[in-house]
Amino acid sequence: MTESHGARLTVDLDALAANWRILAAQAPGAECAAVIKADAYGCGIARAAPALWRAGCRTFFVAHLSEAQAARAAVPEAVIYVLNGFPPGSAAAYRAGGFRPVLGSRAEIAEWAQACRALGGALPAALHVDTGMNRLGLSVPEALDLAGDSPLGAPALLMSHLVSAEVAGDPLTARQVAEFARVRAAFPGMPASLANSSGTFLGPEARHQMVRPGYALYGGNPTPDRPNPMRPVVRLDAGILQLRAVSRGETAGYNARWTAPGPRRLATLSIGYADGYPRSATGQGVALVGGVRCPFAGTVSMDLIILDVTDAPEAALARGAPATLIGEGLDVDEVGRRAGTIGYEILTGLGKRFDRHYIGDEPETRGEPLSRVGEGQG
């Protein structure tokens, strides 16, 4: 792959921008924000956020203050919401960065209101109402009580989070939409946001004034029961370190979990679970070598994966040649299924040892690798 990295992660910034436009077009009349938490789902806030800004996105959501600070450095003029509220005593840092906390408890609301008074006036924030997740947010009764006597004044945004928008016809989604409508009626005129990536593909009753896609921006399928409308953004290639022939009955990898059913050819790749490729893909994972799907042979280890490349074309088998673990039709959703997880975890777990290569977005940086992995990131 390169002299200093065993694997390369390629991020297509043009595809990322195109996906934002697809999602924006799916929600006419609503603002399309972008969720860039978890280092832009593993793609890198420092490069992903500016590409989304140039595509037209003006509002971004992150999970933590550190991510907000990285986002501010990348897109100085953006509106930035912090989904996980704010830690006690951090209001001054939020004001300094111009960040908007998503407030989800009476304690957070009280502290934010007190801090606003001390800092000289109301500061924008979002109000999070729980309509079924039971994770963060005010209960519906709490929100209704607050509507008539809010110490915040008028929050900048009223929001909730869908539980299973990707499951077609899930009755819980309809209940959440109805509960959120009930709260919205108590806050007339306030901008509202309910739809995540999959929610953007529901009807207008879920879109409101803002949609906040995340996973779909990075190529994940927001409509699992239908073909993926999004363009692939991420490609992951690992170099072949060594090739070997084994005979019937020989084993490979830790604990000898794989046994050769006959004469086989194996390739060892320079990637493992320390790079974020899950160990749970043992026995189920595949990689593409010369366009041929080759199954994993043996346990995914910390730094290495073994492939059975018996059926791969000879021309593709050489020391240093690439094997594709994400890309060429092997998408993050399939990779997640094969590892017994979801594509979200695959993307956000992508490690820092890769040679991160960015293509698209700006002609002057087309094909230019990031000079230092993690540069400018939270």
Rank of each mutant, 00 (worst) to 15 (best):
D14N: 13
D14H: 03
D14V: 10
A17M: 08
I22H: 12
Q26P: 05
P28K: 06
A34R: 00
I36N: 01
K37D: 13
D39N: 14
P50D: 10
R58V: 10
V62W: 03
Q69T: 12
E77Y: 00
L83A: 13
N84L: 14
P87Q: 11
A93C: 04
G98M: 08
F99P: 00
P101S: 09
V102W: 00
S105R: 02
I109E: 01
A110S: 12
L119E: 14
G120I: 08
P124G: 08
M133Q: 13
N134M: 09
R135E: 12
G137K: 04
G137S: 09
D149I: 11
A156E: 03
V163E: 07
P171T: 10
L172Q: 10
A178C: 09
A192K: 00
Q209E: 15
V211S: 01
N221P: 04
R226Y: 08
R231H: 14
V234N: 02
G249M: 07
E250Q: 15
T251L: 05
G253K: 09
T259H: 06
P263N: 09
R264C: 03
R264D: 00
L266P: 08
L266T: 06
G272D: 07
Y277V: 13
T282H: 09
Q284D: 12
G285D: 06
V286I: 15
R293W: 04
A297N: 06
V309Q: 01
D311V: 13
A323I: 11
T324R: 13
G327Y: 00
E334Q: 12
V335R: 00
R338W: 12
I346Q: 02
E362W: 11
P363F: 07
E364A: 15
E364K: 06
S371W: 11
S371K: 11
